[in-house]
Computed example of a mutant assay.
Amino acid sequence: MALRKDIWRPAIVMATAEAIIAKGSIAGFPLMWLPPMGSFQFLADPFGLWRDGRLYVFVETYDYRVRIGAIEVLVYDADFRLVDRQPVLAEPWHLSYPLVFEAEGETWMLPEAHRSNRLTLYRAVDFPTRWEPAHIIELDHVAVDATPVFHDGKWWLFYTSADREPDKMTALHVAHAERLAGPWTPHPANPVRVDVASARPGGMPRVIDGRIVLPVQDCSHTYGGAIRPLTMTVLTTEAFSAEVGDALVAPASCAPFVEGLHTLAAAGPVTLVDMKRTELSLHGLSIEAVREVRKLGRAIRTRASARG
């Protein structure tokens, strides 16, 4: 167990995703933090939808003592006052990255759930609190942080693979479909990009100047260390190329949450982000201490046996 734990905290940035990408930073834009959590708990992976003048922010909620993420919604009025907060989705497996969007006359959620060994698309039955499994998306690999976008008459899905631990951070895959429910066709060049600094999706794609711009995580120094905009310069069913932009990092003004930034999710006139700090785990420290004592005990017994 690591001695330090990642503690994330989301915020609402009062700027569009396009403005943030153009500036290359969230520094200087007003922001409002989501509520804090207790010790060794956090909220992360914010995605949002506006409806009837309210902003619905969906987040992962996580407690290190439970170790299974679930999904909550926080509701803000037009003046960004928190007016409601409720749990909305839990499964026997870990859930995170609750990407919510509207398409084909419905409201959908595509959460990260690779520990279930499948990718499940949920439909809102009674928005925002009741969701039902609607479709299982079949792909070439179990997907991590699957991120859809509709562009030029076709659905595109970006994801990394859960096959091996390093692939979750480094191997970007693409699939395409005519309809959201599929069938989905994996790109023949998969993985289309292998790079620990610009592969794992990290937010809501935007179409800027006719090209898809996908927020991706830079995990080269730490998990979720920064977000980079990945612009698709060629994206067809047969070919792929992309250019990566500069890293968007947590600014010093957000201290102590300056050790990572791993979500950039457009929500109309605002953008949702999350930033992290690390917290010393006394439980992890106690485990390490017990291990060291046991190692010392084994060494003493070995020496005693050798002396006979």
Rank of each mutant, 00 (worst) to 15 (best):
A250W: 03
L272W: 08
L139H: 04
R85F: 01
D167L: 05
C219A: 11
F80D: 05
D52V: 00
F29T: 08
V293T: 09
D6Q: 06
T147C: 09
V192N: 07
P36W: 00
V213H: 06
R303G: 05
D167V: 00
A175R: 08
H151K: 03
D163P: 01
Q217N: 11
F29M: 05
T120E: 08
V88F: 11
A252W: 02
R4H: 07
Y62R: 02
K23H: 09
L99K: 12
R307C: 07
F40R: 05
S305K: 15
H173D: 06
R303C: 00
G308N: 14
Y122K: 00
A70R: 15
S241F: 09
A250V: 02
T61V: 15
R228T: 11
P191F: 01
H262C: 14
A143N: 05
V59E: 01
K154M: 15
T185R: 09
D209G: 05
F127K: 10
R291N: 12
F58D: 10
P92W: 13
R307F: 05
R4K: 06
D218N: 14
E138K: 07
R211I: 01
F80C: 04
S281C: 14
A124D: 02
G260V: 12
T237F: 00
E288Q: 12
R4V: 04
D145V: 06
Q41A: 10
A265I: 13
L248G: 01
A242E: 01
T129I: 10
F80A: 04
L157K: 07
M14F: 15
G69N: 13
L285G: 12
L157S: 07
I137M: 09
S116A: 15
V66Y: 03
R291P: 01
V66E: 04
R277N: 04
A90T: 13
P215L: 04
S281A: 13
S220R: 09
A266C: 07
R179L: 14
P111K: 09
G53T: 10
V73G: 01
D274A: 06
L95H: 07
F158N: 00
F47L: 06
I20R: 10
M169K: 14
G268I: 05
P191D: 06
R228Y: 04
R307N: 11
L248C: 01
Y76G: 00
G69E: 11
L34G: 09
S286G: 03
L31G: 03
I212T: 13
D79Q: 14
P191G: 08
K168R: 15
T231A: 10
A70I: 11
A134D: 08
R51E: 15
I212P: 10
E138V: 14
Y97L: 05
L230M: 13
H173N: 13
F257H: 07
W33K: 01
D152K: 14
P148I: 13
R211A: 13
E178L: 04
D77V: 11
A175V: 07
L74K: 02
T236K: 13
A175C: 04
I137Q: 11
K5C: 02
G182W: 02
R67D: 06
D195G: 04
E72G: 03
A15V: 06
Y97V: 03
E259G: 02
A247W: 03
